[in-house]
Simulated assay, not measured.
Amino acid sequence: MEAARNRNTWHIHPDTAALAQRLAAAIARMAQEAIAARGAFHLVVAGGNTPRAAYAMLPQLGRDWQCWHLYHGDERCLPPQDPERNSLMLDTVWLSQVPIPARQIHHIPAERGAEVAARDYAAVLPPHAFDLVLLGMGEDGHTASLFPGHDWGLEKSSPATLAIHDAAKAPPQRVSLSGWRLQYTREMFFLTTGSGKRVALAAWLRGESIPAALVGTAADVWLDNAAWPEAVPGAI
């Protein structure tokens, strides 16, 4: 089921398996369209469990891997082999199985500390728009590592990357693309599953100023039935 509200489109899937399958197919299709039109596909990946199953399907669906360029929306300041690193998850379920050139896989060097990693990562971001940005949303409405009560970097005068020192979830030190840099993309998908996200999604539908809503002003929101706040005033 799909529903439109404001400038968002809400893709409601029966369960997480269906969402992952359709998401993987959409990413592969968008990659081919971008490569045919511009010779490259620039993708910002999200961490967490929601997109993991979709990433695992991409080795069978994708092609023209030499044209893919990958970036992260955020990363935790932990050692590279820490199981909480987004980069390790991506390498394990997807990148170890496909021949994307190493120079085109841009992991955030968060093990260097938030300030240094944010500065260094800003230098590798492309000057043009991304083709697709994938984002998740926390139960508090945060996205990437942009948490409520913090500077989200929505103004174009903000840096493209932000050093986070007091994240609301552990670890406190993180690196995140800023709000405006995440928005500088041809397409944006939010991936949200589970009943724990209903309150935040209802706030988004009501137009409240949570980070996900302010970053995803024109996003496609992919969710499962469990996350859809159908009984909440303001839902469709």
Results as ranks from 00 to 15, higher is better:
E2V: 05
E2R: 09
A4M: 10
R5Y: 14
R7S: 15
R7Q: 15
R7V: 10
W10P: 08
H13I: 13
D15K: 03
T16Y: 00
A17M: 13
A18Y: 00
A18P: 02
A20N: 10
R22Q: 14
A25I: 04
A26R: 06
A26I: 04
I27D: 08
A28I: 07
A28H: 11
M30K: 09
E33T: 02
E33K: 03
A34P: 13
R38A: 14
G39V: 09
G39R: 05
G39E: 07
L43A: 00
L43Y: 04
L43M: 12
V44I: 14
V44D: 04
V45P: 04
T50C: 08
P51T: 02
P51R: 01
R52E: 13
A54N: 03
M57S: 12
M57W: 09
L58E: 11
L58V: 06
Q60L: 12
G62N: 12
G62T: 12
R63Y: 04
R63A: 07
D64I: 01
Q66K: 10
Q66H: 15
Q66M: 05
C67I: 02
C67L: 00
W68V: 09
L70M: 11
H72D: 05
R76Q: 08
L78A: 08
P83H: 05
E84F: 04
R85T: 12
R85K: 15
N86H: 00
N86Y: 10
M89L: 10
L90A: 08
D91Q: 15
V93A: 12
W94L: 15
W94C: 13
W94I: 05
P99Q: 09
P99N: 10
I100S: 08
I100M: 10
E111D: 09
R112I: 05
A114W: 01
E115D: 15
A118G: 09
D120G: 02
Y121S: 12
L125P: 07
L125M: 02
P126H: 14
L132D: 07
L132F: 11
V133G: 01
M137C: 06
M137T: 04
D140Q: 02
G141R: 14
G141Q: 11
H142I: 03
F147C: 01
P148H: 00
W152L: 13
L154F: 13
K156R: 15
S157D: 13
A160K: 13
A163N: 05
A163M: 00
A163F: 00
I164N: 01
H165Y: 10
A170H: 08
P171C: 03
R174P: 08
S176G: 06
L177W: 11
G179D: 03
R181Q: 11
Q183V: 06
Q183E: 08
Y184N: 14
Y184T: 13
F189T: 05
T192M: 13
T192R: 03
T193I: 06
T193G: 02
K197G: 10
R198G: 02
R198C: 00
A202H: 05
W204S: 05
R206D: 12
G207P: 02
G207D: 11
G207R: 08
I210Q: 01
P211C: 03
L214K: 14
L214S: 14
V215P: 00
D220R: 15
V221S: 10
V221L: 10
W222I: 01
L223F: 02
L223H: 09
D224Y: 06
A227F: 10
A227H: 03
W228D: 01
W228F: 07
W228H: 08
P229D: 04
P233A: 13
A235R: 12
I236A: 13
